[in-house]
Design a protein around this nucleic acid. Sequence first.
DNA 1: AAATTGTATACCCATATGTATATGCATTGG
DNA 2: CCAATGCATATACATATGGGTATACAATTT
Lengths: 119, 119
Amino acid sequence: MARAATTADAFNAVAEPRRREILDALAQGERPVNDLVELLGLAQPHVSRHLRVLREVGAVDVRDEGRQRLYRLNPQALKPIHDWVASYQHLWEERFELLEDVLEDLKGEDLKDQESNEN
Amino acid sequence: MARAATTADAFNAVAEPRRREILDALAQGERPVNDLVELLGLAQPHVSRHLRVLREVGAVDVRDEGRQRLYRLNPQALKPIHDWVASYQHLWEERFELLEDVLEDLKGEDLKDQESNEN
DNA sequence: AAATTGTATACCCATATGTATATGCATTGG
DNA sequence: CCAATGCATATACATATGGGTATACAATTT
């Protein structure tokens, strides 16, 4: 077996820096292909290919407008990635959590002043 | 040019599901290779290879303990990924934010007559 | 020292990458 | 209806993946 296809999932699709650039560009709004060609400095066929990959994993949507194809970001496709890394976030922020634990303990010992505050 | 090396950065390293599994396992604590072999149901050489990739991108650290090698998660290596996706988070949560705004407005205007909800 | 255990590395293979280049196919303009 | 424009797809190529299997190496046990 070879490496998983770039179209296998968002993780693979987004591993390619150019595709991240494309998504970054589309985060600012819908764009035709040639806009991206200029922005990335890549040949048009390459951009089209990258867009195809992104489309296949649902990271972008297309819309036909005359002879242009307008690509639009579909951010929800990135959510699985976020969900996965987010579960690690507390690990690199452990120090803060420990601090919070301490504060929690302190609060527990004399919490007669406050009762509810949400964040 | 072929696809970027899996060792190019955390994005590429983590695109492989088995490597994510390994990290998930290590999130619960230091483990020797054979533990992971059993956990993943892969051949030992493959696990060693995956660990090498993860080591090269700094996602894991190793420690020698007798004839075992204990691998440990280094969560900070995942931070760049988190930082990148996090910048998109507000986009897929926009709907909720808008909804919250609306609710806020409704509450402000007449907060006695409110029970319908949207989907 | 020899045997055993725990890992790492070497080699083979099929696959699919990303870039390059050329071509195909709509849509719009004359 | 023909040319031009905006994209997509087809083909060619070097690379390196992940899995398999065999082997090498280090530490411990005997």
